[in-house]
Design a protein around this nucleic acid. Structure first.
Length: 325
DNA sequence: CATCAGGGCCCTG
DNA sequence: CAGGGCCCTGAT
């Protein structure tokens, strides 16, 4: 992370949103299973993040000013130049989509009402949403995740932030921001490799180019069926079945897409679902399908995050060995 | 010191 | 459709 901001974001606009109840602020905006990155920061009931908006970095502060049953979220948008009403509104609409604020999860809760695994988890996290990021940002994250340990993924992303993102300051907070795909697409592969991203340099470049030209926009992508969307995303260079699995769920909120289990996740689900060390991947996929049908990935997400929240308070012995730092 | 595998994916045969 | 190679890093 840079020590000096490239920009001070001094213009502020504020508004409030009322997500559909039930809504759980902290578990929506903070995902303990994700690796930390300097473009956001969380404290109980408060969340700061940056986002690219019409070619500029903006800062956002979100605050929990309601309750699970009467949810309200206050949003402050910080920018270098004033935003028009229309621009602000579109930005907030995007944000609401990414964090699933207006999803009605009541049908899901009814579906899993009698599930013994889910009951205790829902007592803690009912109202948690799937939180995503814009497509391009997510692609970058999934590329640096590939074939790397957590520490290395963090290092690669921070190197990229330092080289191409804008460091911004608002409310006394210094955060990184992403960059526009045009910036990366114009870079030499060698200078990317110097940032220790290795062979991923090629994927980063080609994905950036693909997003500028020749890739459908997000509103079209959102309109596609799960299968069509999967096929479309697989066209991105360096994005294979594992990354697409994450994209479908996190970015596009396809709650029922769960047909890929990586080895470390396989071990985690083996424990959570079967209290065993290692169950065949196919067995896990069958089980979640039978238990949770169209909600299977969402339900699995609840279990997964619950486990990582638990780990914050006390280390989970068997889990620590699976998380390779 | 060498070797290897890691929260995949592409490319080749 | 199986399997080798790929950047780097830390573990052995």
């Amino acid at each position: 992370m840079k020590s000096n901001p490239d920009r001070q974001l001094t213009c502020v606009r504020s508004l409030e949103l009322a997500p559909i109840a039930p809504f759980h602020f902290d578990s929506t905006f903070h995902k303990p299973s994700h690796f930390p990155s300097s473009d956001c920061s969380w404290e109980p009931s408060r969340f700061w993040m940056t986002r690219r908006w019409v070619g500029q970095p903006v800062g956002l502060k979100l605050q929990d000013v309601g309750t699970v049953q009467q949810p309200r979220v206050s949003i402050s948008v910080f920018s270098a130049q004033p935003l028009s009403d229309r621009s602000l509104q579109t930005l907030v609409d995007n944000l609401a989509f990414d964090y699933d604020l207006f999803a009605d999860l009541k049908p899901f809760y009814s579906y899993v009402e009698c599930d013994t695994l889910m009951q205790p988890v829902l007592e803690r996290w009912k109202g948690m949403r799937v939180s995503g990021a814009p497509l391009y940002e997510s692609l970058i994250v999934y590329i640096v995740l590939q074939n790397a340990t957590v520490r290395r993924s963090v290092q690669m992303l921070e190197n990229l932030f330092d080289a191409f993102g804008d460091a911004v300051e608002f409310e006394g907070r210094l955060l990184s921001s992403f960059w526009d795909p045009q910036v990366l697409a114009a870079v030499e592969e060698d200078s990317l490799r110097r940032l220790k991203v290795g062979y991923r340099a090629r994927s980063l470049l080609r994905v950036s180019s693909q997003l500028i030209t020749g890739f459908p926009n997000e509103s079209y992508l959102r309109s596609l069926s799960d299968e069509d969307l999967r096929q479309e995303l697989l066209r991105l260079y360096g994005i294979g079945p594992a990354s697409v699995g994450y994209l479908l769920f996190e970015v596009f909120h396809r709650y029922g897409c769960f047909n890929q289990v990586s080895p470390w996740e396989q071990r985690i689900y083996s424990r959570l679902l079967f209290q065993q060390e290692l169950v065949p991947a196919q067995r896990i996929l069958m089980e979640v399908d039978q238990r949770w049908g169209p909600w299977k990935m969402l339900a699995a997400h609840y279990l997964f995050e619950d486990l990582f929240w638990l780990r914050r308070h006390e280390p989970v012995e068997w889990l620590e060995n699976l998380i390779r730092l």
